[in-house]
Design a protein around this nucleic acid. Structure first.
Lengths: 235, 235
DNA sequence: ACCTGAACACCGTTCAAGT
DNA sequence: ACCTGAACACCGTTCAAGT
């Protein structure tokens, strides 16, 4: 035997045996198993038991595949939100809404990477659905007395805060650095010149990413906007 | 001439003609010229006029190089802050502090990518300097009446918000997607079902990343924490 | 119309060698 | 002790060919 046994040599697939949806589904499986940046075309092809080039018949670029994935992720994100209730006072509503957003992203790291950290894009359709969702929240705020401009800015600020926390947490867990792990923190140096931080060493993660930490800032934001609304109504 | 002219064939460099600092400096040059993720070992080697393998004598992994770069970036970040003044009331101080942080990151995209979005790590030394800086802010807040725990959480929340805005802006500019560009936005669909958002279309970027947008949320946060402090003192 | 292996240009990293 | 080209395993993408 001259050519030593090497590859199982997959049999040629009949046409129509894969399609774009299968590829995207497989891509999510691979990404879930490891992480989004472990997703490569060769690995995906192997997972699907397909030649690499076949994928390129359906997606001209890897980026196109990622964009399609992002679209699906956005859909899942939107569907994960409950309908906007109108029995709750707006501060509580806003609080719940973004608390929810955080848990959604936290429970789906691939979604987080696609929508929040990667530079991939979503379709106009997905954008529209996101905007519709935002509009319903803005309507809620406008109904409570905020000007359109302020409603927009309130939504924006709380959104940036929430996503900032999600991203921060995600990046921390991606970098294996236990820099912020308590144990290591203790050995980093003497804390004698930093008495206030020293008292924080017994904390959870020192990074300030617990539920309480998140909700503290969220409550602060909402409270600040309550004040603003009062001033707006008074002025 | 059998071997067609191909490479200029760089002459061998004498030992000691490069060192770790030169490599890091060159890496920043390359990253500045394009962006951090354009920085590759071959490109860097070419820029330095050195064999690729030479870099690996000083940095065992590309990650080591990135970590070193991150360390320098953290130093620059800290030095860019003015000393903490004690003549300003804490709300204004906090406002200025994070307004400053935002501009620092915004003016240095490589620093932003290294410290905020990449998973690279910084040394214990850099971490210490960051903590010392944080401690001085905490001291300021504690002096104003916040408990240690609340001072920590206030700092944390405003930090997350600020960095969230910086990252958001950075990711928007990295993805060429003009999804949020006004012109495209207008053509996306009819806005008739979204009257509130429609009124925002004449905005700057629709993304809500202007200075005013940022400072609106910042002011909201600070205002919320003022309320909290009042309640803490009352209770 | 769809599927494919082989090739290309790139990347990070290693290694056996030069000086 | 430092510097190096060539090689390796990987990646994204293309292409000329199979059915």
């Amino acid at each position: 035997m001259p050519g030593a046994a090497a590859k199982p040599a997959r049999r040629r697939r009949p046409r129509g045996s894969i399609n774009a949806d299968d590829i995207v589904a497989g891509a999510f499986e691979v990404a879930r198993r490891a992480s989004l940046d472990q997703l490569s075309m060769p690995v995906l092809a192997e997972h699907l038991d397909v030649g690499v080039a076949s994928i390129y018949w359906y997606f001209l670029k890897k980026e196109d595949l990622l964009n399609r994935m992002t679209d699906l992720a956005v859909n899942r994100l939107i569907q994960a939100f409950p309908p906007v209730p109108d029995d709750l006072p707006w501060p509580e509503f806003l609080h719940d809404y973004f608390k929810r957003e955080r848990t959604i992203f936290r429970d789906d790291q691939v979604m987080c990477d696609l929508v929040l950290v990667s530079t991939s894009t979503y379709s106009k359709d997905a954008a529209r659905r996101l905007f519709e969702r935002e509009e319903s929240v803005l309507a809620r705020l406008a109904g409570a007395g905020f000007s359109a401009e302020n409603a927009f800015r309130v939504f924006n600020a709380v959104s940036v805060y929430t996503r900032g926390m999600v991203i921060h947490e995600r990046i921390l867990q991606r970098s294996k650095t236990p820099t912020l792990d308590t144990a290591r923190q203790r050995q980093i140096t003497d804390w004698s010149s930093m008495p206030l931080l020293e008292r924080m060493l017994d904390r959870h993660p020192l990074a300030g990413t617990t539920d309480e930490d998140f909700e503290f800032g969220l409550a602060g934001l909402v409270s600040g906007f309550e004040t603003l609304l009062r001033e707006q109504e008074a002025g």
